[in-house]
Design a protein around this nucleic acid. Structure first.
Lengths: 335, 335
DNA sequence: GGTTAGCACTTGTGCATGTTGAGTGCTAAG
DNA sequence: CTTAGCACTCAACATGCACAAGTGCTAACC
């Protein structure tokens, strides 16, 4: 038996199964793909593939379906990325237009990606580790309530309401604002924890309590901007693609709602700089996603964008879409 | 036949059906509820109820299930709001603790509500029509890029990146900031469109172009804060409650993702100040929700909070939960 | 008049049974 | 190594049947 044909058979099985949702048998294979051999030969090949754990049969007299391992081999060694259609390119291009607002862009990105792939699209807010402090603002909302605003040079704005121990004077607040602003403007958000204490220490004793509170607020904001959020779209696709197939949708929805889970999932996926990373079925650390695959890649300065769908998905097309979207996203946000 | 008993029968049917998910027959009714009559009598009553369109039989020899109209009557005239359990009260109470940040509170609110009701919880961001301008900030991000920040006295912060036609000077920006701040601090966001032009008109000619651009940005932000958003949680409950029942989950997820749809739905629901409003099955304007019900009510200054679930839901308990949560929400945010 | 017991009737559900067809694995020959 | 042939397996589908749940109706009852 020839090794190349074995892989060819696996590819045919994966493609047919993804397309038809039904176990594929030896006879159907030789008909649909012009492999130059008979069904019996294919059967032998399939027996070997099954022995190697790449495909499995749901029951004795059904066709075979790929296992997680089979998909893995397919993705790693067999599939070649499909080029996008002109229409798809155009759709992605149109992302370039419109306002520069990060929120808007990400919002449109997930929508586009979910439509392109018919899966659930997920995007992580851009990392702002390297972001610099651009501006600080303290606003008195109530006698003991101060709104702390931290603006980074990336245009991202963090806000937080804090409670002061005692009444706060407007002029004291102004003073502290310029004090803080003078000390931390231009420093990296990530460095705030080291810089802030010294600012507090330099304050007059009577302001130190308030300064401390405000510093806490600022630090929380900088942590907050690192504690990334995700945005998603296309959850309805989950229901659609599983209309007659039992990917129990419940656990998947749960996972999607737990931002923490998704964030860990994405960051655990290691960033292959050459292309997209795929995590298939039980390879996923989270049990609820045992029948799901994640296709993701980094963009900009390391945040992730990707999709989530059933293991039975069209990997080449999906990977192409994710990669293309990530590239455009990098171009827009990175530039 | 007595009218009160007829209603009693309807109530029993609704309650049993909600509980068991199965059509309920005359015999089971007399056993489970000690109505003082025989099953034959119940059958007669049920025939009448069916004639009035309040219940229906899936097929000839099955029990009856309530129709939308039946649920409607049940909600309007029969059910009485169940008091919450002590544990539930406690859970809601604990909402009072923790940070005052609006985002945080709403986030926790939807989570809580979805757990309380086992449905999808939805909350609309508070209206800020009456909000006053508290602070304005212009931050130069790049030579031609300005970040406009608008802070309201409610603590809500709006942000937007705008492109200037030509290079912007830092001092010009400072000047304009104090000019704008002086003119519009304390005015209602809703009034900005009327106030801003005069501010622009008062500027020196050489600054007028930039001022105009900034004014546009501010106005967009004030519009933006009126263009409400919604937050939701518990979509996984949809999958759970429909494990063996065909509320096609796809259209519902689609509706939930379209904020516009949900916003219209919520605002169309009219605000009954005495309690919660319920929209049942086909009463919903959106087709995808033909098998779903929405239970919602207003909080604070008119924004909505509520849940969405299958028509077959435990209305009394759900309504109690929604009402209680809305009250606490009003207390926290309104105070 | 409202209520009830009794009974015939309808119909979904579960079960056993048989049939079909897709698909496999094996063997023996090319 | 490939292939034709064949026996075998098993899900899916259909058919027939008994059963149980539930109804509607009628006639008797208070």
């Amino acid at each position: 038996m020839s090794e190349p044909r074995k892989l060819e058979v696996l590819r045919a099985i994966v493609e047919d199964y993804v397309h038809s949702r039904e176990p594929v048998g030896s006879k159907a294979l030789v008909e649909r793909h012009h492999l130059g051999v008979s069904s019996a030969t294919i059967r032998n090949d399939m027996a070997v593939l099954e022995e190697e754990g790449l495909i499995a049969a749901p029951h004795t007299s059904a066709g075979r379906i790929p296992t997680d391992k089979g998909y893995r081999l397919f993705v790693d060694r067999i599939s070649q990325v499909k080029p996008l259609s002109a229409a798809e390119r155009r759709a992605i291009h149109s992302l370039l237009e419109g306002p520069d607002d990060v929120d808007d862009i990400l919002e449109r990105t997930v929508r586009l990606l979910s439509q392109l792939t018919n899966q659930v699209a997920v995007v992580q807010y851009p990392h702002s580790n390297r972001a610099l402090v651009r501006h600080v603002e303290f606003v008195l909302l109530a006698p003991k309530q101060v709104l702390v605003v931290l603006i980074a040079d990336t245009g991202s704005v963090g806000q937080k309401v804090i409670e002061a121990g005692s009444d706060v004077g407007d002029d004291a607040l102004m003073l502290l604002r310029s004090r803080f602003l003078g000390s931390i403007a231009g420093t990296q958000l990530a460095l705030l924890p080291q810089v802030l204490p010294s600012v507090v220490a330099l304050c007059q004793p009577e302001l130190r309590g308030l300064a401390q509170t405000l510093a806490h607020g600022l630090q929380a904001l900088s942590d907050n901007s690192r504690e990334e959020r995700i945005l998603m779209a296309g959850t309805a696709n989950l229901a659609r693609s599983n209309v007659d197939f039992p990917l129990s949708i419940g656990p998947v929805l749960e996972a999607l709602e737990e931002q923490v889970v998704m964030l860990r999932l994405l960051s655990d996926m290691g960033d292959d700089p050459r292309g997209v990373t795929v995590s298939i079925g039980r390879e996923n650390p989270y049990d609820g996603l045992a029948e799901a695959s994640v296709v993701a890649t980094g963009y900009g300065s390391g945040a992730k964008v990707g999709i989530l769908g059933p293991t039975r998905m069209d990997y080449p097309t999906t990977m192409a879409a994710v990669r293309a979207v990530a590239r455009y996203l990098s171009r827009i946000l990175g530039g």
